[in-house]
């Protein structure tokens, strides 16, 4: 595992991935840009600097596992996977189309690199906990990561899973909360307040790490600390900006589930310095 991260290289790389992501959503004509952009930096660091994997052998038994519990932000995962070579980048333009390997929500049997399907919120942490428990039972070194939304924290099953992961001392499990403060109906705090979210996780017996989810060094450091923590699972609560990187999308609930049209795409690409 890399201990250091080249921040400038990471930023440049993620800017490129943001452009790919927006082009993909524009081609699809629907999808979820806001939450995809808020978690992209985390996924980039996780896949490029933390997880053991082999894009040439997506089913390698020794790989670490990843569960995208907030399945609707799969565009972020797809651009990261394509960038690593799990499938050709040209596939990105088929997102959500009939016959595509890239379904509207993650489907493991179509997309190389997906460890499980998701899309019905609240289930991913349970699946990840089961994976982690199985790895532990067999004395295997696999680590398991699960990315959740902050609105998703409203699901009761999250807390069932949280209770069980701490109960079984699953220190090979690392949850991440993409805390962008927005859900479809508005501010998470207004729709159904989840705060104090860090205290809740602590009370459930988890090691809690709070970070800026767009700071590459903080992201990597949190994953390293999670691995060092023994005897309990870790959750990284990442403060993020919904729509990060595109001025007119940032902090706008309306960009939760709307794809950019051609004009909006051009403006976004200009801002990212990725025109043409």
């Amino acid at each position: 595992m890399a201990q250091k991260i080249d921040v400038q290289e990471a930023a440049a790389h993620c800017t490129q991935l943001r452009a790919d992501l927006l082009k993909m959503l524009n081609a699809a004509g629907s999808g979820h840009p806001g939450g995809s952009l808020s978690c992209l930096d985390i996924l980039y660091v996780l896949y490029n600097h933390v997880m053991k994997q082999d894009p040439k052998d997506p089913k390698w038994d020794g790989r670490d596992r990843f569960v995208l519990s907030k399945g609707h932000v799969n565009p972020a995962l797809y651009v990261v996977l394509a960038d690593l070579g799990y499938f050709p980048k040209s596939e990105l333009m088929t997102l959500r189309k009939f016959g595509s390997i890239l379904q509207g929500h993650p489907y493991m049997h179509k997309t190389p690199g997906l460890d499980v399907s998701s899309g019905s919120l609240g289930q991913g942490l349970s699946v990840a906990a089961g994976m982690a428990a199985a790895a532990k039972a067999d004395g295997k070194p696999n680590r398991v990561f699960a990315l959740m939304g902050d609105g998703e924290q409203e699901e009761g099953e999250i807390w069932e899973a949280a209770m069980s992961a701490a109960h079984f001392k699953l220190d090979n499990l690392c949850g991440i909360v993409d805390h962008n403060h927005l859900q479809i109906d508005g501010n998470v705090e207004d729709v159904m307040n989840i705060e104090p979210i860090a205290d809740k996780w602590r009370a459930f017996g988890w090691n809690v790490i709070g970070i800026d989810g767009h700071d590459y060094e903080q992201i990597l450091d949190a994953f390293l600390k999670a691995e060092e923590c023994k005897g309990k699972p870790t959750v990284i609560i990442a403060e993020t900006v919904k729509g990060k990187g595109v001025s007119f999308m940032e902090n706008q609930a309306g960009w939760h589930g709307t794809a950019p049209n051609d004009e909006q795409l051009q403006q976004a690409l200009r801002e990212l310095g990725q025109e043409g």
């Binding site: 991913g124 982690a132 199985a134 790895a135 209770m163 069980s164």
Partner: peptide, 20 residues
């Protein structure tokens, strides 16, 4: 898994994905 049927089911699903 205690009295928590939703977690019970998805937790089992995770175990099956690891060969159990």
């Amino acid at each position: 898994l205690g009295i928590a049927e939703q977690n019970q089911m998805a937790f089992a699903a995770g175990m099956s994905l690891m060969g159990k």
